[in-house]
Design a binder for these strands. Sequence first.
DNA 1: AAATAGTTTAACCGCTTGGTTGACAAAAGT
DNA 2: ACTTTTGTCAACCAAGCGGTTAAACTATTT
Lengths: 204, 204
Amino acid sequence: MTKNKENNTEALILDAAKDIFQHKGMEGARMQEIADKAGINKAMLHYYYRSKQKLFEAVFKSAINLMAPKVVEIINTEEHLFDKIRNFTDKYITFISKHSYIPLFIINELRRNPEILKTTLDHNFDVSVRDKLREEIAILIQNKEIKPISAEQLFLDVISLCVFPIITKPLMTVILDKNNKQYDEIITQRKKYVADFIINAIKY
Amino acid sequence: MTKNKENNTEALILDAAKDIFQHKGMEGARMQEIADKAGINKAMLHYYYRSKQKLFEAVFKSAINLMAPKVVEIINTEEHLFDKIRNFTDKYITFISKHSYIPLFIINELRRNPEILKTTLDHNFDVSVRDKLREEIAILIQNKEIKPISAEQLFLDVISLCVFPIITKPLMTVILDKNNKQYDEIITQRKKYVADFIINAIKY
DNA sequence: AAATAGTTTAACCGCTTGGTTGACAAAAGT
DNA sequence: ACTTTTGTCAACCAAGCGGTTAAACTATTT
């Protein structure tokens, strides 16, 4: 996890909490385990974060604020859509591979409490980003560079193809009969493969 | 959940356990809650299934045995690959939409215990199915009907594009700014959209 | 109809859980 | 110098957990 250089207790707790919560979820995590990992007394968790729920929310928001900007960042560049796609798949697969527990963590805890996002994400992923992408696609369709597709479907395609194979690694290694190393190689190849796949699918 | 016609207590428990476990996971589920849902005494859970772990495993195996055959079934038909893809995306998206909690349930609990599959799935998803798909793709590549791609990558593509948008509904409705009904419509359109998308991506 | 086996229940048990308390020490303010 | 604030800890607590028990009820066998 994110190592903190200062021996600041509050940050020490948050780092330990990230590790435990993201691997075990809200229900699976134990306050004692987080305290042990942080190397401090359990009472400190409540001193700094009041309750398990509050500590969890801090971890959740930190996860959202780690993931969301990465998406927005690339969409907001001035490149051609095809370059955006190549850029995104490569960077996002690399990034998610490094933080493979976070997407599932977000998906799960959002199911338990669908409201939690409304106070966190709205600012990061606002209307302008969506509209910009929609416009860009509309122009490319008009210019007959790409087939007539909806921005929403394309967005879902890109994210699905990047994220799903990573979060389902334990399942897919069994189904595809690969060991960890072999599967990691498949994921590495996907960084280029997925971009070509998508571009082939949408171009005229 | 699956309703059972007989007032067979054992089946009543399993149905209730499916519901609770699949929504809340192993750690989040409470034995008392399962008993309440089944309308019986908590001691009955232990009478029929010994422990929470054993009951959970029964639910997990039932989930695997519901999902796996659906995949194998379609791969094993004698249709052309493109028809298989059209058939699969349509049927699988419909099917997963009806049981939207199961994929996430399987993915999650497989992370906690990667060994659990080895006693369950191996028989359903054996070598012959994999080899058959690989051969079919090899022939199509040789005939220049499709681009040279690996069977593994294509398999990951298909499953990702079908399943991920469904399990991330609570997240995606916020990101894409859709209400439930609008998002369901997007999923419905995907049944055809995904097949076209994939076929365009791989065909010559 | 008595005995037996199978099913269901309320009450209970030991343990773990998130959270609290009060004593105490180290800074910080005066 | 001493008072207040902030940070830390071991010990504790009530609630809730999975699991057990012994007795009661029901169906089956003899």
